[in-house]
Design a protein around this nucleic acid. Sequence first.
DNA 1: ACGCCTTATATTCATGTAGAGTATAATCGG
DNA 2: CCGATTATACTCTACATGAATATAAGGCGT
Lengths: 319, 319
Amino acid sequence: MDQAKGTRKGRTGGKANEVKADLIAVVVAVNNSDPCVLTIAQANALPSGPFELAHRSLQSGLRGWVEQQTGQPLGYIEQLYTFGDRDRIGADERAISISYLALTRDEDAGASASRCWASWYDYFPWEDHRSGTPPVVQEELRPRLMDWADGADDSATRLERRRRAAVAFGFDDRSWNEELALQRYELLYEAALVEEATRGGYSAAPTPVPGRSMIADHRRILATGIARLRSKIKYRPVVFELMPPVFTLLQLQRTVEALAGRLIHKPNFRRLIEQQELVEETGETTAETGGRPAKLYRFRHAVLDERSAAGTKLPLSRA
Amino acid sequence: MDQAKGTRKGRTGGKANEVKADLIAVVVAVNNSDPCVLTIAQANALPSGPFELAHRSLQSGLRGWVEQQTGQPLGYIEQLYTFGDRDRIGADERAISISYLALTRDEDAGASASRCWASWYDYFPWEDHRSGTPPVVQEELRPRLMDWADGADDSATRLERRRRAAVAFGFDDRSWNEELALQRYELLYEAALVEEATRGGYSAAPTPVPGRSMIADHRRILATGIARLRSKIKYRPVVFELMPPVFTLLQLQRTVEALAGRLIHKPNFRRLIEQQELVEETGETTAETGGRPAKLYRFRHAVLDERSAAGTKLPLSRA
DNA sequence: ACGCCTTATATTCATGTAGAGTATAATCGG
DNA sequence: CCGATTATACTCTACATGAATATAAGGCGT
């Protein structure tokens, strides 16, 4: 495909088999039920920078870049994915992108000149189902994806495309699965319905679907982070990285709902949290919620020790 | 720590911020209830090679190296983790390791000169609990980990180490969790009980615990692959990548047991497989199993289409 | 041919958990 | 003091899971 580029890099002195490695961060916080990502460049890019010799490790390099570009110190970090440059748009030379997900609280609003929190759903308007399926899904994504499917050469491909669209977006009475955020973005990319897909300039660029784009493959990386986080909150107590030290159960629920992009059954949510003993009461209450004062809770950090929390789904014998 | 190396790389012409990127493969197959990994260099290394300019993508580069070094073509591939060189032992220059998990069948025994399948449990004897907890856990790992814990300076650290060892290995009536394969290896590394941990030559090297080691951080990468696979078989139908086209339910169970390193309740396993409609009968039976002839099944490839199969663990509303 | 061993397959039961709905309690503002 | 609002508690049903037991169908030795 792009084999013509194979011998392009003729720098003298440099070893042929070396590449540039970029560290890219998806830094997430939740403010007032709004899931936010830390951005730079007028919300057009994620914090990032090359892995340098001075960096002690990949993670410390990432921390350095994020702090330098946004002033935001990072707590919880996990690796997302390493992309090769075939996936990178506009990359001028051989490069790989090592992406990370970081969770933080947007507490200290000090020195936040370049710090810019943007809502996830500015980039992915179709991902927020907290008020029901957003209109853009039925009114725009569905017909345009169907057009794309019908544009295939053979009928097998047409069926295949329809099926993939239906699974990803929950068409035809399928249920919406919030964890498929990455698949949805990639499907739209493949259908050339997002701005990034038409950057090559080869095809006549149609109007992209709603949703802000980013430089290079940053929006794809953001989608990867969203998908990972939506999956992870279900089996690891990572939400608490996004919560203040003390909170009410409803605040916790609203945070999870913001991340998942869908609503949660309140009594069941409370039951789940309580029976898993994820939190403990502080003894205080707050009346700032409007009605009956709510108990305040804090995260039981001990659960990080107690549970290895890898759920089984196989009929393993307990013997 | 290794900051002294910071300015070491003074090559003229080459850009400073470029690194070597190695592609490393954990290629898994299961033969006769034995989980195997594809190795080279007398079973001392995993197939690997640098990411080169000629490679179309990271995955195709990996495929190339594995096929060249072992003759084994790869089917299913997924990325595992990208390690920085602080984690690499004996790395002479700045480098990162991008590791992958591949699943295959060891069918065509043709041209397998350099191809060498080695059992997982040669490298991790403490991971096979199919015949109960292996003796090495109680007889060797436990006392030596306790010694390590007791060797800490302050009592808080001692308690912490004991707790981590207990969680990882299921001491003190805790249950064994097969998915913690990586944590177990890293704990042994930290306690300097594996050969890799004493390569620096600084400390007087004690006798490592049983279990074959590998070059660089390859055993760590293998542990990463084992942990990932043990986790993934529980929520995605990846086992079938390791099965022949047609198989009995017991063969399928034995394969899962080989991977998980523990036994499965037979009736429940069958129920799980059947009610999820993962397989369909071929109509044939085989009498090669000793007793009553077993029905032969094949994987229902349609499930890959139908299900997005991301299980929920939150009380989401279905409305 | 018969019984027995082995493996395959089917059935049952108790328990626990998830989804969903309903009921009561404690504030505040009029 | 009433009702709007939010918090908290309880109930019910369906289904999945862990575990045990029962029946079926071959081979094999005598």
